[in-house]
Design a protein around this nucleic acid. Sequence first.
RNA 1: GCCGGGGUGGGGUAGGCGGUUAUCCUUCGGGACUGUGGAUCCCGCGACUCGGGUUCAAAUCUCGGCCCCGGCCCCA
Length: 425
Amino acid sequence: MDISRPRGTRDFLFAEMRNRKEVEGVLRRTFETYGYHEIKTPIFEELKLFTVKSGEEVVNQIYHFTDKGGRELALRPELTAPVARLYMNEMQKKPKPIKMYYFGSCFRYERPQAGRFRQFWQFGCELIGGRSPLAEAEVISLASESLHELGLDGFEVHIGHLGILRGILGREEIPSELQDRIMGVIDKGDVEELEALLGEVEVSGESRELLMKLIGTQGGPEVLDDVEEYLGGYSESLEALEEFRELVETLHYFGVDDYHVNLGIARGLDYYTGIVFEIYVPELGAQKQICGGGTYNLVETFGGERVESTGFAFGFDRLMNALGMDEENMRMVDVFVIPIQDSTVPEAIRITQELRAAGVSADLEVSGRKLRKALSHADNLGARFAVLTGEREIQDGKVTVKDMERNSQETLPRDEMVDKIKGRC
RNA sequence: GCCGGGGUGGGGUAGGCGGUUAUCCUUCGGGACUGUGGAUCCCGCGACUCGGGUUCAAAUCUCGGCCCCGGCCCCA
C-alpha cells in the first residue's frame, strides 16, 4: 500500500517552518501596532457562504461535502467571506470601526501549477465600518509597512478607484450585471476583449475612448491631473476622483509616497465599491501579485446591515517566495547530553531535565552509541554544546562541557553548569 | 479538459539504440582510529510506478491504468 501526500499540497520541514513562523511573527507584530486583533473562523463553513458571494460556478473548485447531519459544508476557499460572516454573526452591534486580522489556510480544488496549490495560506485584515480616504490610506500604509518590516525589496503598490470607472458606465446606463462583466475584463487587462465587449454593449464612442484611455493611465499621483482632464463632464467619476486625491494626500502623511496610480486595477469582483489596490513583485513573473485589497461591501449580500470594509490579504506562500529566505542548517537543540558509561545514564537524565526546566533546549543520547558516534550526532543536530557525564567527573562533582563551535572543552562544577550554559545560549 | 515532460534503493541521480552482477553521491547501521566527533578507510541495509504484450532475454521496446510536475483555460 502506497500512501502519499495529496496533489497540490506541501510538507514543510523544520527549516522552512522556522522561516514561515518568523514571517508570521513580523506580520502579527506589525498588524497589532496598527490596532488590529486576531480572529479565527472555522476551517469549514456552509457551502452557500461561498456560492452567494461568487456564484454557483465556484462549487466545482471547492472541496465540499455533506456531513452526517445532511448539511452542505465546504472547506473555505478564501477568508474574506468567513470574516464577513463572523462580523455579521458576532460583531454587527459592536461599536465601529472594528479592526481585525486573520491568518489561516484555504483550500481550492484547482489544477496546481507553479506557485498554485490546493492548500494555501492567507494573512489579511479588515477595517469594518469606517470608510474614508483616511481609513483607506491607513490600510494601504499597513500593507506597505509590513513588507518593509520584512525587508522585502522591489515591491510595487498599485492603486485604482472603481468609482471613476463605474461613473462612466453609469452615465451610459449600463446595467449592473454588464458593468460587473466589463470590470472583469478590465481586470484581466485584455484590451481587445474589452473593445469587443464595449462595442457589443453599445457604449458610446466617447465613453469607450475615455475608458480605454483611463485604464492605460499609470504613474505617480500627478497623473490624476491627466485623469481630471480626460473626465470633463462625467460628474460621478469626478466625485470619485476627488476621493482619490484625498487618499493620495493622506498617504503622504503616512509616509507612503512610493506607489503607482493605476486605473487598470479593477479586481474583477462585483462587491468592490471604491479604492482597490494590488501589490506586485515584478521579478516573480506570473506569480508577481502578492497582495490584493480595497473597499467593498459584502455583509449586505449575506443578509446583514449595510457596512463597508476596507482590507487586504497577503498570499502568504507568494510572500515567502518573494522573500526567498535561505533554509540554513538549523540548530535542532542547544545542548546534547551524552552518558559516557551506562552507569552515568541517570545523571545524564537529571542534567537534561534541569537544562530543559531552565528553558534550554536539550536532547539526550538515547541510542547507546559510543562517545565518538554520539559526538558526531551532536554535530548533526547543530548542538551548541555537548555535556559529557563520565564516572570520573561525577565522582569529583563535575561535568564536562564541550563547545561544539569552538571545539574547546572545560570541566565545570556540577551545580554551576546549568547557569553557565544558559548564559551562553 | 488540452498540450508537454516525467515516475530508478530513505533523498538526489546515471543507465534507456534489450543481455541476464543496475552507476555515483548522500542518508542510515556496524567496524578501524584504544573516554572526544566533524576527515579517511572497510563491511552492510536498501531500488527500476501497476498490469498486459513482444522476446531466449526488458529498467531499457510497445499498449493500457494510476500518480507527479510544467504550460494553457481558470485564478474569489
